[in-house]
Nucleic acid binder design. Structure first.
Lengths: 211, 211
DNA sequence: TCGCACCATTTCCAATACGATATCTTTGAT
DNA sequence: ATCAAAGATATCGTATTGGAAATGGTGCGA
């Protein structure tokens, strides 16, 4: 017996390859805009081209890489200033609403929330940031919205921009206010706190992203 | 000048396979929830398994198919009532705003807009619906929002639901009002018209989708 | 010196075959 | 009829091949 028990962990090799590529692009081992040589990557990751191509297809669907037909894949270039602007315009439409929904919902803000620490490195900060926003979406109870938000890869783009400047985000303190509002089930306060947090992040990012 | 001119047409076979699968799922040749046998599909489409796996990986990232590791791919099941509800909640956050932005923007509503006709079949209606909403997003000038909207695959899910009932959507008349408001650059009217249109569609769909 | 065309190399893309492993189905026993 | 085991089937990853296109470098000509 033991039931399905299937979704404990991923089993497909392509999923691990996907994670490896994603992480390497996040931390800059694979630079934005650089070409992705399939054969070379296959050697480096010790896999055959097949799961690699599969991973790249998925990454392409998420706009983490771009595909030039018959010319290979590229790591998606850094967001320009207008790109940052567009990204935060979309987030501004979704996330305050999600925060409000989360405050309404019955669920409670998890206790094991680890606040971003000053000595966190980029990957850890990115993970915590992604976790925070994803948790808000999860509490809101709209799976599709959560997916849509996830697919924006906001933390991915944001942290690559920070990494270029060697600068660290200052706006992550805003997480507390949002969490507090959700905990006290205050709809409008949650939306407002999220709006403030996003506006803060946006301000710092447009200053970083030129062009 | 003249630019690369490269993206005139797709060249990768996997892209054609992707389109074929998508279309077959839209019109019901591949039923919702049915299994997708890779070898069989490869024979039917006269391609090798290689581009098929790539296409399926992309479709999986877009949630058009679901992957059960070591057990193959499934055509995504029909949206349940809560799924429809979630979908339209997200659209309600994005599309009225996009319509308002489109009304603000300098661009004009294209003349060659073909209104949905009563004798259109499902694929044609789905195409026109998708075109309409995508055009609004395009005029809004936010490429990321447009992508995010596209990735929701709203018309895909909606038309599969209609197809099951053999029923045709009644709410497509609302397109006119939105287009008119955009043409006259009336922000609030555009948003309101889009909101009405979505509410109308939603009403008809939740009636169709049980569970 | 600069631009352009040409050519060789590299790379992508698809096809094919095979082995290992997990799942699905069917058969058979209780 | 229910359950379990065994065979059949499919997925998954590997390895390799060949063709076609794009890239990068070289040399010629203006």
């Amino acid at each position: 017996m033991a039931g399905p028990l299937r979704s404990v962990g991923r089993v497909a090799l392509a999923d691990h390859v996907y994670d490896a590529l994603y992480r390497n692009m996040l931390v800059g081992t694979i630079a934005p805009g650089s070409r992705l040589n399939i054969d070379q990557l296959a050697r480096d990751l010790h896999v055959s081209p097949t799961p690699l191509r599969e991973s790249l297809a998925r990454l392409e669907a998420e706009e983490v890489v771009v595909k030039r037909p018959l010319a290979g894949y590229l790591a998606t270039p850094l967001l320009t200033r207008t790109g940052v602007s567009e990204l935060f315009d979309v987030r501004m439409q979704l996330e305050p609403w999600l925060a409000a929904q989360a405050a309404d919902a019955g669920g409670e803000w998890p206790d094991d929330a680890e606040a971003p620490a000053p000595d966190d490195d980029f990957p850890r900060l990115a993970a915590k940031d992604a976790w925070f926003h994803d948790t808000v979406a999860a509490l809101a109870g709209n799976g599709l919205a959560r997916q849509a938000l996830r697919r924006l890869n906001a933390h991915f783009h944001v942290y690559r921009l920070f990494a270029r400047q060697g600068e660290l985000p200052r706006a992550l303190g805003g997480h507390d206010a949002v969490a507090a509002a959700i905990r006290s089930h205050d709809r409008t306060a949650a939306a407002r706190a999220m709006r403030r947090h996003l506006a803060e992040s946006r301000k710092q990012l447009v200053a970083i992203a030129d062009a």
